[in-house]
Nucleic acid binder design. Structure first.
Lengths: 252, 252
DNA sequence: ATTCATGTAATGTCTATACAAGTTAAGCAC
DNA sequence: GTGCTTAACTTGTATAGACATTACATGAAT
């Protein structure tokens, strides 16, 4: 006389991946899957540890580890004596995204295009090596792009890239996928750093952006990490009152 | 015939706090203490789990939990079959600091002073409540300050603050300690969000900053979190080419 | 000398159990 | 009904032991 699983427990079992990863990791995956697919909603209660133990046939310490780690990541909320719940939607969840100019332009209902000015492999000079945490003379990728919004140039993007983390960088078609999007795909961002100032463009930059050298620009120098390694260092130059959004790079 | 502890194990025992916190938490504290005080240096090897088990008289799972959590925090590096090590100094550690205008001015060898324009308790309007993740009508603190560098106004700071996390905010003397420094002391920052744009000040703001309404300013809207709660939301307005630095808020 | 096998040590995972501590609801005394 | 006690359930922590996986050093066989 087996008692039927609750729907919540059943959806947990359904989402269990069939890999050879450790049990606790598969349980974490299954929980994240249910939350990510909105099968489990914010504030919703999860099965208790003992229910999971019975349903999965594993020990409580294993279940406990999965739940504890997800709690530490802010995915779940646990209260002693009460239960485990999907964490409420964060007030700033929509701001977790990092600035992506293509998306931003699309959000405004405008058309985004890109012109690739330069895309090649070079040897790092001292400054470039410092920015990427490499040694002078090591091979790096270097690119220069101009982003257009409805035919108007709105951002100049100069970027250097770590070759080990993105070995196929120079073969990409950046008129289709922005460097940022590509890099975040091959080496997901875990941390970032921004340096922002208002600057005056030099003559070449002003020409590329089709503005005068008196027009103040917002300059962002951004470095992004994937784990402990620096993926890329970029300098973004945008004339006028362009709106910029920076987030903290958290879980997706 | 007791074998003498290694120096590393001994310094671990010495740093064990005498609280009634859980064992694993006290072990974490002791390890962090040794790293923080540079008793243990980056790359240095820690005692193995079994050594700690013997030295502390606890079970291996308890030691394992402490080490695993510190590894997840990036404090330690573990390698199966080899050992546990203090994590190498991060390449970008010096950029972990968040922008602090007083420090920045001091770094330039200039004198920083503050004028408190406004400091009071108000009821949150809809916009303010949204920014702090509260409900309209709840009590919040509100402050307006002007920062001076050698008698020149260089930044206008408008800020609202969560009363529950910083109940004594309005009693502080912000000519001595900046609101940012005070808030970071009472509710340490764990996350932040920035909105940056180049704007033109309105007449009142231009007057407070002693500039013309044609002078472009860098506007930063910053919100900071302590855990899951929003501590404060600030709007910083700086004329000219002021240099701004944003970091990722990591462990201290 | 080189290669291979083996043993040792270290971390990684998992189990079964135990007790502590917080929460909630039912039931009892009044 | 009110208030208290108690029981059941939940999460938090800790233990002792087991086996797996990885790395490395040592020594044997070639």
């Amino acid at each position: 006389m087996t008692k039927r699983q609750s729907d919540t427990t059943q959806s947990l079992l359904n989402a269990l991946p069939d890999t050879n990863a450790p049990i606790y990791a598969r349980l974490k995956s299954a929980i994240l899957e249910n939350i990510g697919s909105s099968t489990w909603l914010p504030e919703q209660r999860l099965p208790s540890e003992s229910e999971m133990v019975k349903a999965l046939g594993v020990s409580r310490m294993t279940v406990n580890r999965a739940l504890r780690e997800l709690t530490s990541d802010g995915v779940l909320i646990r209260q002693q004596g009460v239960g485990t719940f999907v964490a409420p939607k964060k007030a700033h969840s929509s701001l977790f995204e990092v600035h992506n100019i293509a998306q931003e332009i699309a959000d405004r209902g405008h058309k985004h295009t890109t012109k690739v000015v330069e895309l090649q492999t070079v040897k790092a000079n001292t400054d470039q090596a410092l920015r990427l945490g490499l040694r002078t003379g090591e091979r790096i990728f270097k690119s220069t792009l101009i982003h257009f919004e409805n035919q108007h140039p709105i951002q100049l993007e100069q970027r250097i890239v770590n070759t080990t983390l993105a070995p196929n960088y120079v073969e990409q078609d950046f008129t289709q996928l922005t460097p940022f999007a590509y890099l975040n795909k091959v080496a997901p961002i875990t941390e970032g750093e921004h340096l922002v100032e208002a600057v005056i463009p030099n003559a070449a930059e002003a020409e590329q952006l089709a503005i005068s050298t008196h027009q103040p620009c917002l300059q962002i120098k951004r470095r992004t990490w994937s784990g402990q390694t620096i993926v890329t260092s970029a300098r973004l130059l945008s004339p006028g009152h362009l709106f910029q959004l920076f987030g903290h790079f958290g879980r997706p």
